[in-house]
């Protein structure tokens, strides 16, 4: 049985910023209070709508970072240089400010405990956000004292970032893997690895996916999120490696927005 959010019509709601947390030089997490929020599933997103004084509106989608178990809704937003919406969300918002959002949106790129595992998550840059909601959901809904439940849902994250200081949720991922041997996180840095870096230092490729991912014979549930070129290379390579296309779910985000 799968718990589902009731199919009620999605409405625009006024969210209040409770806190703004810097994650990396280019990303911020907004912790929000959203009155009437109906709950969500890990992997879903919201649409954010900003309205200028002259009535001009801009809408963008942002992935939800918080697990369904959290009281506060969290969005992690990357500032895009030419963005219409993200500079406002990352630089001008302060606690107490309000803006419009609607959600939760999307029933395809979602993972709940009954969806099963193993779970193979592949993210690029801020594509980590919906994957982090899945990791957090897995962590907070499986009892810490029940290692068997975790062993049934082993999880691997392959996460591509440009540089070490651009790794979103770096400390939290380290803390989660330190306490949970059934969660593995593998980083690859595409541009500037720190001195002494011994991990991957290249874009995600076939050899890396074959080494880090579960074999196709284990029928892992795969979620890939990141910039369109990364998602397309990863998804087609995984299918080439024998994974069933229906088990490889993707979420591309293009330069004009789309879920990040």
């Amino acid at each position: 049985m799968t718990a589902r959010v009731a199919a009620t019509r999605i409405e625009w709601r006024l969210a209040t910023v409770l806190d703004v947390v810097p994650e990396t030089p280019g990303t911020r997490t907004l912790l929000l209070d959203v009155p009437g929020w109906p709950g969500h599933r890990a992997g879903q997103h919201v649409d954010v709508r900003l309205t200028a004084d002259d009535g001009y509106q801009a809408e963008r989608s942002y992935s939800i970072a918080s697990p369904p178990e959290d009281e506060k809704l969290a969005l992690t937003v990357e500032r895009l240089v030419d963005g219409e919406v993200s500079p406002y969300l990352t630089e001008e918002l302060h606690p107490g400010d309000k803006f419009e959002l609607r959600g939760p949106i999307g029933g395809y790129f979602v993972w709940d405990l009954p969806s099963g595992g193993p779970l193979f998550l592949v993210g690029g840059g801020s594509g980590i956000v919906p994957l982090m909601a899945m990791i957090r959901h897995r962590d907070s809904s499986l009892a810490a004292g029940d290692p068997d439940a975790r062993k049934k849902l082993p999880t691997r994250l392959l996460y591509s970032s440009r540089a070490w200081d651009e790794v979103i949720y770096r400390d939290e991922l380290a803390a989660l893997t330190a306490k949970d041997p059934t969660l593995e996180v593998v980083h690859t840095l595409t541009r500037n690895p720190p001195a002494g870096w011994t991990g991957f230092h290249r874009r995600i490729d076939r050899a890396m996916l074959a080494e880090v991912g579960w074999p196709a014979s284990d029928t892992p549930r795969v979620f890939v999120c990141g910039p369109t070129p990364l998602v397309e290379v990863v998804a087609s390579t995984l299918v080439d490696l024998g994974h069933q296309p229906a088990l490889v779910k993707t979420e591309r985000f293009g330069p004009t927005g789309g879920p990040t």
């Binding site: 900003l50 004084d53 369109t228 293009g254 330069p255 004009t256 789309g258």
Partner: peptide, 25 residues
């Protein structure tokens, strides 16, 4: 609350603008 108007991104290829069905939700 002033979204900055975007100039037309005509130089962007169609491939980089491709999204998934999720984006239509």
């Amino acid at each position: 609350r002033q979204p900055k108007r975007r100039t037309v991104a005509a130089d962007r290829s169609a491939d980089s603008l491709r999204l998934d069905g999720n984006a239509a939700a």
